[in-house]
């Protein structure tokens, strides 16, 4: 078991998300930086979908049992019993030790995962917290000081720390053209792909708003509500993009100018307000290649872990 002593900012339990309920109006949720959660779980030999704590600022927790853990995502500073903890590494906590996490130095979301995962009831086949609808995770709410979270039992076969190569965020969001791209004026299309968009402070787990030169369509287009998913870039009447993120509603009604590829959505997730991002027009084949690059990254990690035990 793990006890949360102190917590600043927003922390929730998240796994890879809740799938197959979009037709009932249920959001996908799940880790906003999926690759960071995958990395955390792979470092611990966990199933990819194990639930972890997603956090945004300082966090202090006490382990009530011996336990291997990792911290991934944005580079937070951490220590446990006077030992510095590197993010992207797996480490061992002894029963009674307190882990202090501070930051982040840059980026936005960190992940604390434990071997075998946190023990959280599954709701509609997922442990993810849906904070807008109030279910999943720990009673459907944000974590708070005093919360105790169970840890699944494990027969550990981990013997030593291992670290991963840390990816770099170049803030270039590769994106596929959206169904309504051609409805925008040539000038707006050019602006969409070329300008440096500033991440607005009105950005959260539902969507990131970007500010810059506003975009216009040739004519007013009447849109009917349609299914949407994380990564879809909508242009509301204000003309400034909203990139849908993990907690986005299942349906939307704004023109879809583009979709950020799954391999790159984490880059936006890890932007702080006032950071700048750019979209880069790619083909489905390039998106596929980008996914394979992630697969190779995790494959190399697995090989290194097999080698080091």
């Amino acid at each position: 078991m793990l006890l949360i002593n102190q917590l600043v900012g927003m922390a929730t339990i998240q796994d890879l998300g809740r799938y197959g309920y979009g037709h009932l109006g249920v959001a996908q949720c799940g880790a906003i930086d999926r690759q960071a959660l995958l990395l955390a779980n792979k470092l611990l030999n966990n199933l990819d979908d194990c639930a972890a704590i997603e956090f945004t600022a300082s966090l202090t927790v006490t382990f009530n049992q011996d336990c291997w853990f990792t911290i991934t995502g944005a580079p937070f500073i951490a220590n446990i019993a006077q030992r510095n903890i590197w993010h992207g590494w797996r480490n061992r906590a002894r029963k009674g030790e307190t882990l202090t996490i501070m930051g982040p130095k840059q980026g936005r979301f960190g992940y604390l995962a434990v071997e075998a995962g946190f023990r959280v009831d599954s709701v509609m086949a997922s442990a993810s917290t849906d904070i807008n609808s109030g279910f999943g995770g720990l009673n459907g709410r944000l974590l708070q000081a005093g919360d105790q979270i169970g840890i699944n039992p494990s027969n550990t076969n981990i013997s030593k720390p291992v670290g991963a190569v840390i990816r770099q965020n170049n803030r270039k969001l590769r994106a596929l053209p959206g169904p309504e791209l051609q409805h925008f004026t040539p000038q707006s299309r050019q602006a969409f792909w070329q300008q440096h968009w500033q991440v607005s402070d009105q950005s959260n787990r539902m969507g990131y708003r970007l500010s810059g030169e506003t975009l216009q369509t040739h004519n007013l287009i009447e849109m009917r509500s349609h299914g949407v998913m994380p990564g879809v870039v909508q242009i509301p009447p204000t003309g400034e993009p909203i990139v849908l993120m993990a907690d986005a509603q299942a349906t939307g009604g704004y023109p879809r100018i583009a979709t950020v590829i799954e391999a790159d959505l984490w880059k936006l997730a890890q932007c702080q307000p006032s950071d700048h991002v750019q979209f880069e027009h790619v083909s489905p084949a390039q998106a596929d290649e980008a996914n394979q690059e992630w697969q190779r990254y995790f494959y190399r990690l697995q090989r290194a872990m097999n080698h080091h035990g």
């Binding site: 979009g22 037709h23 509500s225 349609h226 299914g227």
Partner: peptide, 9 residues
């Protein structure tokens, strides 16, 4: 993975 009806789509 999911099949989400919208308004006539």
């Amino acid at each position: 993975i999911s099949a989400v009806p919208g308004m006539n789509n």
